[in-house]
Structure formats: C-alpha cells, structure tokens
Nucleic acid binder design. Sequence first.
DNA 1: CTATATATGCTCAAATTAAGTATAAGTCGT
DNA 2: ACGACTTATACTTAATTTGAGCATATATAG
Lengths: 328, 328
Amino acid sequence: MIELAAAIVTLAEEAPKILLVRSEAGQRASLPCGPFDPAGHRTLEEGLRTWVREQTDLHLGYVEQLYTFGDRFRDPTERVGGPRPVSVGYLALVRQTAVKNAGKGPAETAWGDWYRYFPWEDWREGPPAILDALIAPGLEAWIAENADKTERQRRRERVNLAFAIGGGAWDNEKVLDRYELLYEAGLVFEAAFDREHIEIRRAEIGRAAEPNLKSGAALIKDHRRIMATAMGRLRAKIKYRPVIFELMAPTFTLLQLQRAVEALSGGRLHKQNFRRLVAHEGLVEPTGQMSGATGGRPAELFRFRREVVHERPAPGVRAPVRVRRQAR
Amino acid sequence: MIELAAAIVTLAEEAPKILLVRSEAGQRASLPCGPFDPAGHRTLEEGLRTWVREQTDLHLGYVEQLYTFGDRFRDPTERVGGPRPVSVGYLALVRQTAVKNAGKGPAETAWGDWYRYFPWEDWREGPPAILDALIAPGLEAWIAENADKTERQRRRERVNLAFAIGGGAWDNEKVLDRYELLYEAGLVFEAAFDREHIEIRRAEIGRAAEPNLKSGAALIKDHRRIMATAMGRLRAKIKYRPVIFELMAPTFTLLQLQRAVEALSGGRLHKQNFRRLVAHEGLVEPTGQMSGATGGRPAELFRFRREVVHERPAPGVRAPVRVRRQAR
DNA sequence: CTATATATGCTCAAATTAAGTATAAGTCGT
DNA sequence: ACGACTTATACTTAATTTGAGCATATATAG
C-alpha cells in the first residue's frame, strides 16, 4: 500500500504555516494524506491533489515530490510480518489568499505554525532558547551514554555538524539531519512514543517537563520527518529557483518579500543588499503603484518578472541568511 | 508492486559509465532492478542494495534516492485496469576499482557510456553535432505540427528554455527537461516504441535513419528517464557536495580530478582556476608523492580532505563549466 | 514641529572570479 | 644532446560580486 502525504506550506503574518488534519480530539495531528489508487489516479501527483482536495478543499498549485519513505516500523503500530506502508512525501506551496479551511466534520483542518514543530530552526531573533536549554544538554547526554568510545566520537561529530557546535556555521538547510539526530537521541516526542525512551532521557537531563512542548509539537507517525524534509528542500530551493513568489500576493513591497524569505530561511537579511540583489537579478519589476503606508514612507509595489526564468540559469534569492552566532 | 531501480555510475577513461543489465540478446538493456520485498527488506535502500548485489556482485557505497515514478503506462505493456508498477529510482556511485562485472548467466551486466544514451549532453568538444543535425529540426517540426497558436508558443518556450536556443545559456543540469521534451516530441526511441509516433516524425524531418542511434540508445520501460534524473542530480550535486571523490582513486592528480568533473559536467574547465578553487576550498591536500609522468612534468598526488565537510557549509566543485556557445 | 519608522540611493573595502602570462619539469624523436 | 612538445604550477590583472554601513527621503504619531 502506498500512502501519499503532502506538506502544504503558506505564509501568514511573517510566519510559515503548514496545513494539518486532526482526526480526533486530543490526538496528534497529521499531514493531509491518503492511499494511492492505481485505478483512479493517473499519476502519483494527481492522486495527491485529489486527496488534498477532498480533505481540505484546497486546489494545489506548485507541487514537488520530496522523498519516498519505506523503513520498517515508521508507524510504530506496524505489526511484525504485517503490511508495510510506504509513503511518498510531497511539498506544495499555496498563497495565503487561496486558503479554504474546511474546519468541519471528522477531519478538521487548520494551519499550524512551522516553528511550533521545529522551534530550534527559527534564528530570526537570535539563537533559539531551546538549543541551550534542552537540546544541547540532551545531545550531550546522548553522546555520553554510549559505552563505546568510537561511537561516542561519531555521535559528537554528527552533533557538531548538524547543530554547528564548535566552529562550523549553522546551515539552515540541514533541517532533516537535525530532526533525525533529535529522534535518535530520544529528544522528540515521536521517539518517546515509538520507543518509550523519553523517560530515561528526561531523567538524565534532570527535567520533568512535557517533551511534546519542549522539543516541538509532535505529529502522527513519521509526518514530522516529512515536514522536516519539506522545510529543508524549500530552504534550499528558494536560493536557486523563484519559488518564493508562489507564496506572495501578485504585488508586494520589497520588505514584504524580504520578510517572506526570512520567514522561510529562519534568519535575517541585510535590507539594502537584499533589494540590490532582487533588482539586479531581475526577479521583480516596479508596478508604479505605492503601498498603503505601514507606519513609514510608503513603499513601491513590485511584481514578479516571470521572464527571469528564461534569462538566467538559476534565478533565486541567494542572499546569505545572517544568523547570529551562538555564544557557547 | 514497488520496483527498485539503480543508476550506478562510475568513471573510466574520462567518461561516465552506467551499469546496465541485458536480459536477452537483441533486447533493450535495463538498469539493475527488482521488486521491493517488505518481508525481507528492512528499508527501501537496503532492498536496492540487495538486488544490486544479487544481480551484479557490486557492493554499493554512496546511494541516494532520486524519485518515485508512478505514472500510468510508463511501461507500455501495462494493461488497462491491470496492476500499476511504481518504481523508486536511486543514484549510486562506485569507484572504478570496485567493479566486479558478472557478465555471465541470463542477466549479463556491462558498463555503458553515459553519453551513448544522451549524446546531446556532452559539450566537452563543443556543441554536439546531433543538436543541429537532428534535434533542432525535430523540435522545430514538433512545434510547427500543432494547430493551436498558443500551444505552439508554449512549445517554443519550453524548447528555448531546455535547449538554450535564442539567448539563454546551456544549463547542464536540465538533463531531465531535455529528455522529456525529446520524448514528447517523439525524438527518442522509447517514444516511438511506446506511441508508434516515430515514423511520422521521421517523415517530417526527412530522414529514414535508425532513431535508436540518432537520438541516443534506448533502454527498457522508463529507465532512460531514471538515468536522466540521475545525471541531472549528479551534475547539480557535485557543485555543493564533494561527491566527486566517491568516484576517484584514493590519490589523484589535479588534472585527473578536473577531467572527472568535466566528464560528469559535460563541459571544460579553466585549469589554473580549477586548481585554485579546489585548493582554496580545502577540498584536497598534497600527499608529497608524485604521479608517474603521463607525457609531461610529473604532477603531485593529492587526496581528499574529509574534514572539509565539517568546515564549510557546501563544499563542492563550484567551478563554472565552460560551454562553447552554439553558433546559430 | 519632533521623534520615529520605513524606503531608497549611494559608497567603499574586501573577496571572489575570469582570463590570462610566465616559468618549471618532464617525455619523445632525431 | 637538442629542440619540439606536454603537462604542472606560480603569479598578475581587471572585472565583478559581496558585505557592511552612511545618508537622505517620505511617511505617521503625538
């Protein structure tokens, strides 16, 4: 059986949102998903669009396949020797205006804040507190718990690479690496649920807080992993493809565009250089109209220049994301 | 049923090679592949490794999932209402020394030249002749054949984008776009076989030559599409990840490294700048040993610096591939 | 009118890139 | 041994890109 799952992303109030389905009250939410039907669906992608339409009333525009997950026991309720569900994960982008939230019936849909599920990924206001408060000590404990020295060495290396501890720079694309590390270390709720390890971990780091909150909100099965894959892919993609405009209104100010990129990237940009970049890359063109002032000098409204796709090999917002270094 | 298929790439004599399996004499070759077995395979990737080991005696190192293909009638022998095979495509890299070619039994394996299947992708000696001789006129005919003006416009735009006709620069990563365009235009053998359209096309461009040769050698089912996906991904990846070293011997000269990058990228590099790049990126370090002279001054042998992965966010061979512009 | 906020133009130094020139150190044929 | 040829490697130079900041313009709030 093949399951199709979609990470549907939009932007609202300078924050990335993801569409979630909550089947029963009190249960962990899930991504919109459903089984692939070879008889009814001409292609995998068409199957996905159909499911999303049925579950959320949304008509998807930009859709991109991410990855196919087929590991044993991804769903912890899977029985030994039983059927193995394989899921194909997708990333979809929709404009905020296109949102039609069902919010009714047994499968209630709602937009969830990306960073509620990955609080350690938002560096816009500096290093997230959760890193020092929970993640760093948790990972340290995970490294130390292993008896084998070589394995400890390997764990430390992975931690340093993914979380940029000790020299390296924070790479905002390594979303999946970080999530998988936290999962292995038992620091996300899913791992606890799946492996009943979280009690041990909590004792080790001397905290009794709710892991569901401390390490981001949990989703059903491996849906948070799919979300991490989507986030990493999207962060990489905006650098060399103008996908950001899939999330923007037809016209926008340059600051709105910058805030959108920052929301996805999880860091801050240099304003003057950003505007130079998008102008020089020919990504946008002025409309001549002015925005309703937002507390300062009114800004000019721009629109996306679709032609750039034909002019440059890799048009995208390559502006380097500034991330304030962690003081450790 | 889920099929696992691998595009296994190596380098030999300055040419990229791909591992192919020929089941019966006279038949089109296929990629090493086999069905996913949920009972026996713990993960999809493990399933793939097992199949490759069985079919080719190869133990894969670097493996990366590419894409999952599930369109109806990818296999033209699929019956309406019958089972739909879904295939998960993989890219694998092996060193030439690791080759153990079975070459026996019913499933004979052999290394095939990448560019035999995609002759229009090799720009190392300038624009490939096949572009002007067959592809450009064939695509022109395909554009012209449509009655609807808007559709003709759209086709021309796609052709211009993918094949860099009229202004744009040849993008060596758009391998899949180009293949799909040729398929739609009926210019590759698979399309002819699948849709019996090639006769029409051949008449239109006034040639009676064997399409199997003219537009690259064909593979079974959609395996050439998987190969195109692999090629595009690999060309993109060497720019920001040091995967090229998966294909190099433990030590190598800088020219050997350059030739390897050129073979994959399908273009030429500026020698002095290339060596400055790899040195400055810290990708390699000198061993102190010298190579056996190859007709000139002996070159120093270098080795890959594994540590670079921890030092820089995206270490790779970002040297711009020089492609001599087409004179049109 | 003043403080404040945002928008936008411009400068400047540092770093990177593209394209050479120059020179070194071998092989090969005669 | 000598000259032609091949490959390796160091260095130069101009153009372009990047990172950071200054200065000024135009709005709102009180």
